[in-house]
């Protein structure tokens, strides 16, 4: 995993444990729960976009598959939330696999278009199959998750559940990146042709990471369904797909940490901007603009740059001393 990643992970876990001690208000914890849900999706997207170099504008569809599978199985088929959670993962993985085979043959704008189209198709299905999905009105009364004797109902219990999952997913993803598969993915990002020539099975790896990111999104979807207990198609539209992609881009695609930074920023920003009332959208847009103009490589790039400058300075200082 690398020493750097271990330190970052340690800092994250420490921060997450300490946070509820200082922020006792359930409202803030609730905001953190949603950031956790988004993080699950953006970590997967970061693997897909940053490492494998493939874009997806249809991840709302996988988020929806998770949420609707969990919701329908628990309300209509009498499933308990936990088995429904895993069934949703299985179903989403199958869908992603089938969608991935033809679409991942495409590149650049064409891939973006194909995934966007897929997202829209799922959105239309959710709206049109009224008997099954409840149509545009959605459906509610989704049961809460029961883990042993603990009912996941309070904000703090949701916080613990979702962030434990995020940490697990993060550890898995960091290990993956530093494995043979991770190196293969990065070679695809660099040059698919060269990777192929070196004997990397590029199409296989691309589909693998696509399915993995879909599974992460499905997990987030299932948890969303059980947390909010009501779902309707409007939560799974194109806007959502764009939001998660924006989080990854703003944070920086060069590492999964960038995805987390972007998710925190864009998850917190709307809440912080509540004081601006009607002007919140303006400020939001302005912040995005500043980030994209001054750190086109994302916020994580800024951190790297600052660190680089500091190292240079210390090197200079050392040189002067000697």
């Amino acid at each position: 995993m690398g020493a750097k990643n271990r330190i970052s992970l340690g800092v994250l876990v420490g921060g997450l444990v300490l946070l509820p001690l200082f922020m006792r208000n359930p409202y803030y914890i609730g905001v953190m729960v949603f950031i956790g849900l988004y993080s699950l999706i953006t970590i997967g997207l970061s693997l897909l976009m940053g490492y494998a170099g493939q874009i997806s504008l249809g991840h709302a569809a996988f988020f929806a598959t998770g949420a609707y599978t969990s919701g329908i199985l628990t309300t209509k088929a009498g499933f308990a939330p936990v088995p429904a959670f895993f069934t949703a993962i299985l179903l989403t993985a199958c869908v992603a696999f089938l969608i991935g085979i033809p679409t991942l043959r495409l590149k650049g704008h064409y891939l973006a278009m194909a995934t966007l189209g897929f997202g829209q198709i799922v959105y239309i299905i959710l709206n049109a199959s009224v008997e099954f999905t409840g149509g545009p009105s959605g459906f509610g009364e989704i049961p809460r998750i029961q883990l042993g004797s603990i009912l996941i109902e309070s904000q703090i219990s949701r916080y613990c559940l979702v962030w434990s999952l995020v940490i697990l997913v993060l550890i898995f993803s960091l290990n993956l990146i530093n494995s043979r598969v991770g190196r293969a993915l990065r070679s695809i990002h660099g040059s698919e042709l060269a990777a192929n020539a070196m004997g990397v099975n590029t199409s296989k790896h691309k589909i693998q990471v696509f399915v993995l990111s879909a599974i992460y999104a499905s997990m987030a979807g299932s948890l969303y369904a059980h947390f909010v207990t009501f779902i309707s198609p409007s939560s799974f539209d194109l806007k959502f797909s764009i939001l998660v992609v924006t989080m990854v881009v703003v944070g920086g695609m060069s590492s999964v940490w960038g995805a987390l930074v972007g998710t925190f920023l864009l998850g917190l920003l709307p809440e912080l901007l509540r004081n601006f009332r009607d002007y919140d959208i303006l400020v939001y847009g302005f912040v995005l603009l500043l980030i994209m103009v001054f750190t086109p490589e994302g916020l994580i790039g800024l951190i790297d740059r600052l660190k680089g400058a500091q190292e240079k300075r210390s090197l200079k200082a050392q040189a002067k001393l000697s």
Binding site: Y27, G30, V31, F34, Q155, F230, S232, S234, E271, R274
Partner: peptide
């Protein structure tokens, strides 16, 4: 008009 934002707003 967004459900997630509404949930956060009501919690607030």
């Amino acid at each position: 008009g967004d459900e997630t934002k509404t949930v956060n707003a009501v919690n607030k």
